[in-house]
């Protein structure tokens, strides 16, 4: 054994700072903490700010011209008609709803299937690659998706289904599905991963195959999280602007088939805000649509968050 060093520690000489420096340090720390708190609040401030500023611009319209009945039940959106201005947003709601549902029909099976596959079945190596692919898919800008809708999908749909216009619900649904899938996969996978391995081991110890374990034990245990994934995917579809602006074909009417062109709430704002005179009624009406979008996204996100949290707490 090595001999312990003979040199003893010198007598106590605590590194002492002057009381001024000490106070400076303590104050410095307090200032930094205050700054950090302010930044910590930024998210709350911004969410409130978004609501307040959008509400502020929409307020005059809500006071004077707005009627729930017209806004929610009339499909006639003629904000700059010379004879009779009408603000019925039903067709816009229908447009948003139709492509949201359409995209979910595609994205839900693919997204959840992929989430289940990469969480339960595939090898770690493949999982790594799949996650990168999903990340790349999520990274493609929405304007590029819109471009793809116009330049690639549009002629394809015209040729395949022999319809006059390829910019329609089908087109937008496919594009939106591709945009929503990464969201569904990553949140769905999180939810599945949060199911403790003990569940899987217990099921397998009872003789269940991997398949039975997955669909009878893991998926039911993760169902709240998977539902949240669906909700957030939907949120993405509802809120998407550029891609749907370019892919839906820009026509305001109640859709009757998947080959109909429509217009969504988001696309209407994007398309008309540039022309609407600032502070005018039309301008305020567009902010009112924005207010509705904000409310929808708020509800969707709160619900999804609640589902995820509720789910985590239970396990």
């Amino acid at each position: 054994m090595q001999a312990v060093d003979a040199k003893a520690l010198p007598a106590l000489q605590t590194v002492e700072l002057s009381s001024f420096h000490k106070r400076l340090r303590i104050w410095g720390e307090k200032i930094i903490e205050a700054l950090i708190l302010i930044c910590g609040l930024s998210a709350i401030i911004l969410v409130l700010g978004i609501f307040i500023f959008v509400f502020k611009e929409a307020w005059p319209f809500l006071l004077s011209r707005f009627s729930w009945r017209e806004f929610l039940t009339s499909p006639e959106w003629y904000p700059d008609s010379a004879t009779k201005v009408r603000y019925g947003a039903l067709a816009l709601f229908a447009g948003t709803a139709s492509i949201t549902i359409g995209s979910m029909v595609v994205a839900l099976p693919v997204g959840l299937g992929t989430a289940i596959y990469i969480s339960e079945f595939c090898s770690p190596r493949f999982k790594e690659i799949a996650k990168i692919v999903i990340e790349i898919l999520a990274a493609i800008p929405s304007v590029v998706w819109g471009f793809v809708a116009i330049m690639i999908l549009n002629p394809l749909i015209i040729k395949l289904f022999d319809v006059p216009i390829g910019l329609n619900i089908l087109n937008a649904s496919v594009i939106l599905a591709l945009m929503a899938i990464p969201v569904i996969v990553s949140i769905g996978e999180d939810a599945l991963r949060a199911v403790p391995d003990a569940y899987r081991e217990a099921a397998e110890a009872l003789g269940a195959t991997r398949l039975e374990t997955t669909f009878r034990v893991v998926v039911p245990a993760a169902k709240n999280g998977l539902f949240a994934a669906l909700l957030l995917g939907m949120g993405r579809a509802i809120g998407e602007t550029m891609a749907v602006l370019m892919a839906t074909g820009h026509s305001i009417h109640m859709p009757t088939s998947v080959f109909d062109s429509v217009r969504t709430l988001t696309a209407t704002i994007a398309a008309e805000l540039g022309e609407a005179p600032k502070g005018g009624e039309h301008y305020q009406a567009l902010f009112t649509i924005g207010l509705f979008l904000f409310a929808i996204s708020f509800i969707v996100n709160l619900t999804a968050d609640f589902m995820v949290r509720g789910f985590r707490r239970k396990i």
Binding site: I50, I238, I269, L273, L302
Partner: peptide, 16 residues
């Protein structure tokens, strides 16, 4: 608030 901020549609951000 963070979750909501992340979910606000991009066009609403534009309005803001």
């Amino acid at each position: 608030a963070i979750v909501n901020l992340a979910g606000v549609p991009s066009i609403v951000h534009a309005l803001f």
